[in-house]
Simulated assay, not measured.
Amino acid sequence: MWAMPPPDPDQTMQTRPLPYEARLDARSDAQLDLVVVHCTELPDLATAREYGERVLYAGSGTGNSGHYYIDRDGTVQRWVEPLRVANHTRGYNPRSIGIELVNTGRYPRWLDAAHQGMDEPYTEAQIAALVRLLQQLQREHPSLKFIAGHEDLDTTEVAAEDDPSRQVRRKRDPGPLFPWARVLQQVPLERLHAESP
């Protein structure tokens, strides 16, 4: 049986607000009931930061990112304050907190039919840090009830870039190597799927 390591008293969360954080919509704590787990599908945290800082929505001057990022060594960074709506999961942003785990996923050929394997395992340090973060978020936001993977909520299929006659999932994260049983054993949240009410 997997046992979570004890909390590291020296581990602190690093706060690194995105340049546009103040432009993201504010929300009440009561709106939060869901955590969405992602993987960055990028090689490292620095590249994820570059993507997160990109302004993709001219009207609001904001982009796409999660609220929290967990690096392979278990370091946790907060890029968006939880009471602001980050753009990380279509259709679920107003009610959810997004947590990104640094992992290559399908990088750099995300939508190639011949490159859909996600074979980088998550580190024990990442999973331990994720569990601690989820427990902290439950204490701070008692309305949290559900957890989902990005792939649970965005089931859209698109034409593969290397073979348009084939369809691939737009989002597959956190993927088949994410240890759902370990996490749910430690954190009393109910897994949510797109078909759930």
Rank of each mutant, 00 (worst) to 15 (best):
residue 136 Q to R: 15
residue 149 G to T: 00
residue 97 I to H: 00
residue 121 P to N: 05
residue 128 A to Q: 01
residue 34 L to D: 00
residue 22 A to L: 09
residue 56 L to N: 07
residue 118 M to H: 01
residue 138 Q to S: 10
residue 151 E to K: 10
residue 92 Y to F: 15
residue 144 L to C: 03
residue 16 R to T: 06
residue 84 R to V: 03
residue 154 D to A: 00
residue 77 Q to D: 06
residue 124 E to K: 14
residue 89 T to Y: 04
residue 126 Q to Y: 09
residue 124 E to T: 15
residue 104 T to I: 14
residue 164 P to K: 03
residue 114 A to H: 12
residue 25 D to Q: 10
residue 121 P to Q: 00
residue 162 D to M: 04
residue 91 G to A: 05
residue 125 A to D: 12
residue 93 N to D: 15
residue 104 T to K: 13
residue 42 L to N: 07
residue 61 G to R: 10
residue 91 G to D: 09
residue 146 F to R: 14
residue 135 Q to A: 09
residue 116 Q to M: 12
residue 103 N to E: 05
residue 161 E to Q: 14
residue 32 L to S: 00
residue 32 L to D: 01
residue 37 V to P: 03
residue 122 Y to D: 07
residue 27 R to C: 00
residue 77 Q to C: 10
residue 51 Y to W: 12
residue 115 H to K: 05
residue 67 H to T: 04
residue 2 W to Y: 15
residue 157 E to L: 11
residue 56 L to Y: 05
residue 5 P to F: 08
residue 187 V to Q: 10
residue 72 R to G: 04
residue 184 L to K: 09
residue 22 A to S: 15
residue 74 G to W: 08
residue 187 V to R: 15
residue 54 R to C: 08
residue 135 Q to N: 10
residue 26 A to S: 06
residue 76 V to T: 13
residue 103 N to W: 04
residue 116 Q to W: 02
residue 151 E to M: 11
residue 134 L to C: 10
residue 157 E to T: 13
residue 100 E to R: 04
residue 35 V to M: 02
residue 184 L to H: 07
residue 107 Y to F: 15
residue 172 R to V: 14
residue 148 A to C: 09
residue 160 A to L: 01
residue 144 L to D: 01
residue 89 T to G: 02
residue 192 L to G: 08
residue 160 A to D: 03
residue 44 D to F: 01
residue 52 G to H: 11
residue 162 D to L: 05
residue 149 G to D: 02
residue 124 E to M: 11
residue 176 P to C: 12
residue 120 E to A: 02
residue 71 D to L: 09
residue 27 R to L: 03
residue 59 G to F: 00
residue 40 T to A: 08
residue 129 A to E: 05
residue 166 R to K: 14
residue 14 Q to W: 03
residue 80 V to E: 05
residue 77 Q to P: 00
residue 36 V to M: 01
residue 7 P to I: 09
residue 33 D to Y: 01
residue 158 V to F: 00
residue 29 D to W: 06
residue 181 A to G: 11
residue 14 Q to T: 12
